[in-house]
Amino acid sequence: MNLDWIVRESDSILVLLVWHLGLSVVPVVIGLAMALPLGWVAHRSGAFKSVVLGTTGLLYTVPSLALFVMLPSILGTRILDPLNVVVALTVYTVALLVRTVSDGLDSVPVETVQAAQAMGYRTLQRLVSVELPVAVPVIAAGLRVAVVSNVSVVSIAALIGTQQLGLLFTQGAQLRFLTPIIVGIVLCLVLAVVLDGLVVLLARRLTPWTPRAVHA
């Protein structure tokens, strides 16, 4: 480890970290916003469910590097455009979370849904004030996976040259210099752990009603 290098490069490392954070988080936010309605539709309709889950499952199988490369020709963007990374990770997040949201809504006890229906909740009212709140633990678990794997996948975009911590890896490879690689790995891990912790905290705030054991 070369501490001098770290101190000297700290400013640019910080810039990469901020980019990495943005590229990891923004797709999760957009992805969740898209997955909620899609997951709900999948949960409601059996036929549509296999179509939605089949399609998103297919998207999930496309290796990330391949997706980064293919998107410019689909979106008309330049290869270096960070938008490619955001779109690619949004695609993965949606693919992962649609299933999660659908599973989460499936996990709401039948009696609870029936009771709400029989009490006279309208469909949307029931979704917002009963089903989604009860589905939070399952959705949060999926969100954790999405956030953590995004942090890892973003770094791959360094191979096409996008700004983020992954550049430390390619830089280290070119210079045969371990310090930036280790710094990059450590920062990625820290970022993943912090974001994961934030999701856990948020979920805990939203679910004061669960037995404590569920969080363990």
Partner: peptide, 19 residues
């Protein structure tokens, strides 16, 4: 399982190759 999901694969590959 959790630790390996968070590990950046690109960094890991390069690190191991150099080492």
């Amino acid at each position: 399982a959790n630790a390996l999901r968070a590990l950046p694969t690109l960094g890991l590959v390069i690190l191991l190759v150099i080492v």
